[in-house]
Structure formats: C-alpha cells, structure tokens
C-alpha cells in the first residue's frame, strides 16, 4: 500500500493532465485549474521541508557541540533574525527584513559568485589547453566569444565580433538544438515511464 497508492496517484494525475490537453470540457478545465493550484501549494511545502531539515541539521550540530559549532549558531541566528523581522516587521519596501536582504544577503551572495571570475582566470591559464583537435575547436570558439562580445574585439579586428555572432547563430545554435531535441525525446520517454509506473525512483526506498 505504501508504494501502490503513490503509483496510482501518479498515474491518475498524469493521465488526467495529459488528457486535458486534447479534450476540452468545462468540468475538465475546472479540474485542471484546481490541480495547477494544488501543485503550487504542495510544492511550497516541499521547499519548506528543506528549510526544516536545515534547521534540524544545525540544531543537531550545536546540541552535540560538534567541531566549529559556533558557525552553525551564526547560521541559525541569521535564519531566526530573518524569520522574526519578516513575520513581525513586514516585508514591504524599507522594512528591516528587506534592509537585511539588500545589505547582507544580496552583496554576500553576488560576491560569492564573483569569486568565480578569479577561478575562471586561473583555470584559463592552467586548464584550457590545445591538447587535440576537439580542444582546439573549443578553445578557438571560446576565445572568439570572449573577445567578440566586448568592444575590444571590434577594435582588434572587425571580423572577430562577426565570427562570434556567426558561431552563436549557426553552428553553436544548431548543436544546442540537437541537444535540445535529444533532451525533449528523453524527457517524453521518462515522463511516460513515470506515469505508467515503470520509473519509480521518486518513491525512494522502503
């Protein structure tokens, strides 16, 4: 029962949502709209489960006073502060909640990702090697885009931005299209397997 009920639910909702695409009936449309609404609500709970596991994980580390547990305390303090500010002081413009978001979360998160600029530079020096024909193709395309999509490329030679535009609009676009069609075919096959209950990995073990 623990596995059969979910498989039946998956099959019924899968077939229903597939069928409504081809059959138009007011009752079916109403059901379809309700299911879309339910998906949004259930999904947000799924995301909140993730937040709760985060809380449990950090509380566990603090209670056991594991190595460097002070950092876990910092994480929980950040979480608690946001929850308090959000629920008790509001989320409108100029609220303390958005002040923390603007002055702590946004700068820290974008700085974290900007670190990658340094690592990309280091990787370009160490790892971007013309070892064989394929890597030469990759390297040439990469360099043409790097130069061709900034004003400097135009200054060096007018053919550089032209080549970059051509690569993007013709061979690179077409290869991506091939990959997209492949993914599309794969997704349809997987979706069908899920609906008919062959693909069950989402059920987990037990």
């Amino acid at each position: 029962m623990r596995r059969q009920i979910p498989i039946v639910v998956c099959f019924v909702f899968g077939i229903f949502m597939l069928a409504q695409f081809f059959v138009s009936h007011p009752l079916l449309t109403r059901g379809y709209q309700n299911v879309l609404d339910w998906m949004q609500i259930i999904f947000v709970f799924a995301l909140l489960v993730g937040a709760l596991s985060f809380l449990i994980l950090h509380l566990d580390k603090i209670s056991k006073q594991q190595k460097e547990w002070g950092y876990n305390l910092v994480a929980l303090a950040g979480l608690a502060a946001m929850v308090f500010l959000g629920f008790f002081k509001g989320i409108q413009k100029d609220s303390p909640f958005l002040w923390v978001f603007d002055n702590l979360q946004v700068p820290m998160q974008s700085t974290m990702f900007s670190l990658l600029a340094f690592f990309v530079a280091s990787a370009a020096y160490r790892g971007f090697r013309a070892r064989n024909f394929q890597s030469v193709v990759l390297l040439v395309a990469g360099v043409l885009i790097i130069l061709g999509r900034v004003p400097l490329g135009e200054m060096l030679h007018s053919k550089i931005p032209e080549s970059a535009t051509w690569i993007l609009n013709v061979p690179s676009m077409a290869a991506r299209r091939g990959i997209l069609i492949g993914i599309g075919l794969g997704s349809i096959a997987t979706s069908l397997r899920i609906i008919v209950g062959i693909e069950r990995t989402y059920l987990g073990k037990g």
Binding site: A51, L55, L76, G78, M82, V83, M108, Q109
Partner: peptide, 16 residues
C-alpha cells in the same frame, strides 16, 4: 558563508 546560508533560508521561509 554561514551567515549567508542562514539569512537565505530565513528569507525563503518568510517569502514562501
């Protein structure tokens, strides 16, 4: 790093 993770999760809980 830890402060960022905590604040992000807190933000997400409130907005959701």
């Amino acid at each position: 790093e830890y402060l960022l993770v905590g604040i992000s999760v807190g933000y997400f809980i409130v907005i959701s």
